[in-house]
Amino acid sequence: MALIDLSEVFFQYEGQTEEDGAVRGVSFGVNKGEWLSIIGHNGSGKSTLIKLLNGLYLPTSGEVKVEGISSAAEDRIWELRKKVGMIFQNPDNQLVATVVEEDVAFGLENLGVPPLEIQGRVKNALEKVRMGEFAKHAPHHLSGGQKQRVAIAGILAMEPEVLLMDEPTAMLDPSGRKEVLDTVLRLHEEQGITVVHVTHFMEEALAADRVLCMDEGKIALSGSPREVFLNIGGLHALGLEVPPMAELSLRLRKKGLRIPETVMSIEEMTEALCQLKSAI
């Protein structure tokens, strides 16, 4: 059974109808240990969708279940949110405390964990995102990437089943973006943490096990990154970025070069071109 299950989920903001709602009849599951990326342009419903996964928004109709708990079950909402942690876009607007370790402790304090246990778990979580040496620092002196890592530690400390990330790198510079993505990738590989990641950076979704493409509140494309990102026609129709190497390989193929259709990354392109060269 899937960890998170969505069936026929609709969501409308005030004044919207079912036809022009933010989410219109979406069903899918998130499996344990998987990395799911959700892409789509602004207004496609992807950010609304992710907020439905931990009960921040409740479906207008349909149901969201996390390990069998419905997000609409008011009495179990805290149990559900403990299982599903979430990182937001703006690194500044999710850190509560004036000291890094106090912030990481915030969720655990809310859960009523005993002090000694909090201290251990906070230390551990900060180590996992490699921010241990910053435990006593003030968040506003950190870089954007470091702030996001602190936010991730705050979620990890709560030991959730799933980590939700709503465009966590949209406000960061390239090195901050890499820093955050590498951290989550490592946690995913080493600790097997389940990740649901909303992004509009196509290259970030390449690391996913599965990609969903949202458009006008519906899932327009889905599949492995390769299936989605090599569907160049489909991506163009949705106004989404195509990996530059996939685009290049298509153009070269059209001109008669024998580049495999599966080429997506620079490494793959390099290899394909070198093979082609040695065949001359």
């Binding site: 931990n54 921040l56 805290w78 949110r81 403990k82 942690g85 979430m86 937001f88 607007n93 999710q94 509560v96 370790e101 106090e102 402790a105 915030f106 969720g107 655990l108 304090e109 809310n110 859960l111 009523g112 964990v113 005993p114 002090p115 909090i118 201290q119 906070v122 705050g154 979620i155 709560m158």
Partner: peptide
Amino acid sequence: AMEARCYRGGEGRTRM
């Protein structure tokens, strides 16, 4: 963000 981190007031809260 605070709600997503299970903040629900001072009741039952511990301190690090």
